[in-house]
Amino acid sequence: MGRALINVPATAKAGDIIEIKALVAHVMETGYRHEVDGKPIPRDIINHFTCAYNGVVVFEADFYPAIAANPFLSFTTIATETGVLTFIWTDDKAEKQVETARITIT
């Protein structure tokens, strides 16, 4: 899959609501388009996304072809403990892209 950009605050206080932004490079080919010769371009989208905080899923998304190319998500979670946020994007070919970000609770 492509490159991803994750934006998570490096530090937070326990109980803070933190905003997470996640951007990933992906064509998000809809499956509704055709080449000039009429050949359909097969669908190729990221269809699923999860964010886990120290192994516990805190946010999940299903994408359809109406999600724009290079999908972007912004959501929130409560900072609880120092650890790792794991982001997983899964596409139509069942390929997974995994990114992680550390957060330290002060």
Binding site: G2, R3, L5, N7, K21, L23, V24, A25, A69, N70, F72, S74
Partner: peptide, 12 residues
């Protein structure tokens, strides 16, 4: 920059 998709290319 955290939501500008062009930054994906910058990072590459």
């Amino acid at each position: 920059d955290a939501s500008n998709p062009a930054m994906l290319w910058v990072k590459d």
